[in-house]
Amino acid sequence: MAKQNKAYKFRLYPTDEQAFIIRKTFGCVRFVYNKMLAERKATYELLKENKEALKKVKHPTPAKYKSEFEWLKEVDSLSLANAQLNLDKAYKAFFKGNAKFPKFKSKRHKQSYTTNVVNGNIQLLDGHIKLPKLKMVKINQHRAIPSEYTIKSCTLSMTASGKYYISILTEYEKEIESKKIENVVGLDFAMDGLFVDSEGKKANYPKFYRQMLSKLASEQRKLSRKKKGSSNWNKQRIRVAKVQEKVANQRKNFLHHKSKELVTTYDAIIIEDLDMKAMSKTLKFGKSVSDNGWGMFTSFLKYKLHEQGKQLVKIDKWYPSSKTCSSCGQTQSMPMNIRVYACSCGLHLDRDVNAALTIKKEGILLLANA
């Protein structure tokens, strides 16, 4: 039996005292991370020409700082240990050439920390969760975690509007059998509505961000008129954050439902391996790309398909899906203003549907070769 992981996210309702400890832990984790990074950065600058010496350097641990900064002992020690693990991962990614050099964390960075299960220090008990240093915290557990699932770690986070959440990582044993691929669909990314599939159906994404744009702009204008750091400024900052969080929650909910619908219907889903970051930098498309959440959508598809033994296939981002005829395979120039694909073979089809069909055909070839 293979080990699988699944995370469950729930809302937390800490008391004022517990919320203070949580925020204090955020600060301590950020402090330790930055201290360790500063030392590593200094060592790297000193020894970057001598790679062998650099490999032998013993890096500082959170324990080093506890004697000098006594208040670090007041928070969960496992949260500080995880800060070191996160820095180690960031460093390894940098040296492998997969990421940029690690950056210092600021107060504007995501407020979160991770703790691990050790000797029953984390337990779910009747509407509450027992956590290190916090004891029993009220939790809105809107769905049950199967009894055979083992809790491995928990990540506590706080949103900009001051809401607390916990993500519980579980482990379970399950042999996932690969499903026979019968029903296949191709998805062509659509700037305007998330995607168009190879059967001609559109996702019809509601554009939550654009719906809220005028309200968000109004609240942000009010914020800009208030003295930064004042009580009124902070109240208005929370109002702005609540609008942004509502948009994010609406988007996430829509993407969950849409991905579940597709995963239930098809055995394999074919998409293009797009660089969304590069696309969002394009001035004309920035808001459209960030609004529909394609990256989040594909990650939802990936894990939901995996759980059912189904497949997500990504074709090369440079594959000319929009230029290729889905019927005969000929290619032709297709400027963005031309919305119908007309081919000499007689095909006359919406350009997005044609692209989705082309993506599906290329994906089926990849599946056959695999």
Rank of each mutant, 00 (worst) to 15 (best):
L87E: 01
Y13F: 11
R251P: 03
E171Y: 06
Y65P: 07
N204K: 13
I151H: 03
V313I: 13
K202C: 12
D291H: 06
T324D: 07
I21P: 07
Y13K: 09
W233S: 05
H257S: 12
Q311H: 11
G97T: 07
V29L: 03
G229Y: 08
R239E: 09
F26A: 06
E307Y: 04
K174A: 13
N121F: 11
Q250I: 00
T155E: 09
S167R: 10
S198E: 03
P146D: 05
E177M: 10
L305R: 01
F297E: 02
Q123C: 07
A93N: 13
L305E: 02
K103H: 12
I139T: 04
M1T: 03
L262H: 02
T114A: 01
K66S: 07
W318D: 15
N234C: 11
L46S: 15
Q211S: 15
K163C: 11
I21K: 11
E148P: 02
A7N: 12
T115A: 06
E219Y: 15
C28P: 00
K201T: 09
G200K: 04
L134K: 01
E272K: 00
E261S: 09
S326I: 03
A19M: 04
E177T: 15
I269T: 08
I22F: 08
A81K: 09
R239S: 06
P146I: 01
V117H: 11
A63S: 13
W71K: 14
F254P: 04
K110I: 09
M276W: 13
N292S: 02
K281Y: 00
G27T: 01
K100G: 14
I21T: 11
N121D: 15
L37K: 06
H142A: 04
K66E: 07
N119I: 12
N86Q: 10
K35S: 09
Q18G: 01
Y165S: 13
E49A: 10
M334V: 01
P320G: 13
G229W: 05
K287R: 08
Q123T: 03
Y205V: 03
V29T: 04
G286D: 14
L78N: 07
D88E: 11
K226P: 11
L169I: 14
L54K: 00
F26H: 04
